[in-house]
């Protein structure tokens, strides 16, 4: 498991930064940079583009720090501000796309593993990886995005809705449908076989 950055001191840093603390500002930045870069990549942004959007968000935060209030979740606030910037910037760059088209680009394609990692992985594992990855990419972009946010952050459904600009019910239904679709694609027969075997042996 990749160690996820620690966001548990967010509120403390947020309040200190609003008071003008530069070290708290830096702490907020480094607690969230990796999350934001990774999230941005899912929309097809390269690292430089994602970083530009992150910088825009943080420059504004510093500029308007005295008028900021305390959000329910700092992470949700940052992801949302970042997502809005990035989607607008990408839409401008690609010109012919509307912002909703950019949102439709969200995808869970894996990061290219290094050659070394490839060698280390045994064959069975590799097959399973390909299996799940192809299953993930058959989900709709929104389903993939909800799944991504639910897995990589501790955001509540309410916060996820706020980030993506969708309603609570949509989020719940989409995640439910995503998991059902995944379950169907991933269903292998061996658990059923084992169950049958178990039943037979109990007789």
């Amino acid at each position: 498991m990749n160690a996820r950055p620690d966001t548990s001191n967010d509120l403390m840093h947020w309040n200190a930064f609003r008071e003008g603390s530069e070290s708290a500002f830096a702490a907020l930045y480094s607690a969230h940079y990796r999350h934001l870069i990774n999230y941005g990549r899912r929309f097809g942004a390269d690292q430089a583009t994602a970083e530009d959007a992150i910088h825009d968000v943080f420059i504004d935060l510093w500029k308007y720090r005295q008028t900021l209030t305390q959000p329910q979740s700092v992470q949700s606030y940052l992801l949302k501000a970042f997502r809005n910037r990035l989607v607008t910037q990408l839409a401008e760059r690609q010109r012919r796309f509307a912002e909703t088209d950019v949102e439709e680009q969200f995808g869970l394609l894996p990061v290219e593993p290094s050659a070394e990692d490839r060698l280390l992985e045994d064959k069975l594992n590799q097959e399973q990886h390909e299996h799940i990855q192809s299953a993930l990419t058959t989900l709709s972009p929104r389903q993939q995005e909800i799944l991504y946010l639910r897995y990589f952050t501790d955001l509540s459904y309410d916060d996820i809705c706020a980030v993506m600009g969708i309603t609570y019910n949509t989020a719940r239904t989409q995640l439910y449908q995503a998991l059902t679709a995944l379950r169907k694609r991933l269903q292998t027969n061996w658990p059923v076989l084992l169950l049958l075997l178990g039943l037979l042996m109990n007789r």
Binding site: N2, R42, Q128, H129, Q133
Partner: peptide
Amino acid sequence: MGLESTWQ
């Protein structure tokens, strides 16, 4: 497995 491989 699938989601972890998307994290850089």
